[in-house]
């Protein structure tokens, strides 16, 4: 399966989607000019991945900032992971947040409430 590697910038996140090496990760900042077209390849990749997923799927979210338009697309990604989980696959979402960032922690909690998928909150230190 094709590997997606997008290098982050000051308004777009770093994205790695690599099924063979079992790496799925979104990190950094997200406020792209056109959110829908930015995340489209990610959603398409997940659709293709869902056809023959790995034994265990772990997706890491390690964002420091995202705008509300991105939050909607992040939910779309999480909903795809929920579908995968609903089909009986072993799926885990790991939500990483800076230990001094209550808002990012809360954002994870809210997603965990909305989406029915195993969800792990992990705090990390920026220092």
């Amino acid at each position: 399966m094709q590997v997606i590697k997008i290098k982050g910038s000051d308004d777009t996140p770093t994205i790695i989607l690599d099924a063979e090496n079992n790496i799925m990760e979104i990190s950094g900042r997200s406020l792209p000019e056109d959110v829908a077209s930015f995340y489209e390849p990610v959603l398409e990749w997940l659709d293709e991945y869902a056809q023959s997923p790995n034994e265990k799927t772990v997706m890491d979210f390690k964002l420091v900032y995202f705008n509300t338009a991105s939050s909607k697309l992040l939910l779309d990604i999480l909903l795809k992971l929920e579908d995968l989980s609903d089909e009986g696959n072993d799926v885990l979402v790991r939500w990483h947040y800076p230990d001094d960032d209550e808002d990012m922690e809360e954002a994870g909690e809210e997603y965990a409430d909305i989406v029915d998928v195993p969800f792990e909150q992990i705090s990390y230190s920026l220092d």
Binding site: D34, V35, A36, T68, A69, S71, L75, E106, E110, I114
Partner: peptide
């Protein structure tokens, strides 16, 4: 929080990319 969760679930992204949030 409740309103946010409701809007993010039910809202659609507008043509201009607004999420109503």
């Amino acid at each position: 929080k409740k309103l946010y969760k409701q809007q993010i679930r039910e809202g659609r992204l507008s043509e201009k990319g607004g999420a109503g949030l």
